[in-house]
Design a protein around this nucleic acid. Sequence first.
DNA 1: ATAATTATTTAGACAAGCCTAAAAATTTAA
DNA 2: TTAAATTTTTAGGCTTGTCTAAATAATTAT
Lengths: 222, 222
Amino acid sequence: MKRKISPSEEDYLKAIYHKTTADAPVVSTTLLAEEMGAKPSSVTDMVQRLSEKALVEYQKYKGVKLSDTGNTRALSIIRKHRLWEVFLVNELHFSWDQVHDIAEQLEHIQSEALTDRLAAFLGHPKTDPHGDPIPTKEGNIQAQTKMLLELAPLNTPLVCVGVEDSSAAFLQFLDKCGIGLGVNIEVLEKEIFDGSLLVSIDSKTQRISSLIAQNLYVNQGQ
Amino acid sequence: MKRKISPSEEDYLKAIYHKTTADAPVVSTTLLAEEMGAKPSSVTDMVQRLSEKALVEYQKYKGVKLSDTGNTRALSIIRKHRLWEVFLVNELHFSWDQVHDIAEQLEHIQSEALTDRLAAFLGHPKTDPHGDPIPTKEGNIQAQTKMLLELAPLNTPLVCVGVEDSSAAFLQFLDKCGIGLGVNIEVLEKEIFDGSLLVSIDSKTQRISSLIAQNLYVNQGQ
DNA sequence: ATAATTATTTAGACAAGCCTAAAAATTTAA
DNA sequence: TTAAATTTTTAGGCTTGTCTAAATAATTAT
């Protein structure tokens, strides 16, 4: 009984998913427009169509959130996106910064059998190369544990999942330190004097400044 | 300098490629409409747009054929389609009859790097699971050698690539004999009395009737 | 509490890709 | 070689997903 959804509609569902949280359960058309790279008026149009299809709950001037069925669809798309990212990085040896645009296309391929077999082929991975959890076929997703490295627990395997400051300078500095999205990090010691951290990055031990730690997000890794 | 082509435009280029031959270098809008599952008027529209983009050569009432650039684009799409079919069958263990619709979607993914790496991952296959040749990155394609099994040479590795009679009865009978698209066949003997053939199918020897041999297409295999 | 500002929606337009119905060109047949 | 039948194109319309400009609601500031 699955109604067909266009790639564009899927992109909106995904954007709404990413822009709503427990704190802010509803997202404005303006914010969504930014996320989608479209004008707010276009978003209003689309959101009204999605509302008629019962994929979102929308109240004029009040913002929009996913319905239960919309949420399920969004998770299915995210599942496909992240599985393809695993394929691209683990099997085709792409690097983390090359896979997003390709996965963005692959996530719209419609075939449940393909998704199932891809997951099996990859060994049913639990997280993507960026450390983000992959929803199950049933639509369950492990709660996000994204936190600043500064606040992360000691002696726990972590995966770098994002940055607060995304300036080229910072990213290039990260590269120099051997840090990138998906890299495995473990905090060994916290220096009280200057807030610096002794960390092991892909099994090599080094010291990083608190400024880095304040701008780097990590997840609990495997 | 690659102009963007929509999935729909790509489908038309592919259809024109498949429907033109050395004998009939031009295809009519009506025939193309059948192939595309659209009305002739819609085809005329599209073909005129493609002509403006110099992807096809079109003369009113005279039919359409690919331009050189159109031909190159068509081959690139066919390359992607067939590479994905290899992936689906060899890596994800789909059967030959399940892969077409999925490959039809995957062929539109735009990323040269992806195609290159996929080809390398698969070991640069020369043919797809149906025995059809995979064009090279440069747009070279091995000439088609499709022929009726009845007329095929003895003691030569062949691959089943299609059927003349596509009735369910025939296809089910083929299944029973262990014959399907992509199956390796070699003709060992031709019986003059009844036209039957002694063949080795996936290394098992059996005799098949001339009626089968008259309705089965094979390619020179590897 | 009202005015000014900002956010949001509505209205009207456009391109892509399809459709149906009607017109025009081509092919076939008498 | 002209008339009938068929093929192909044109004309006009519809949906999706976008846009700009204008109107309206909500928020902020005085």
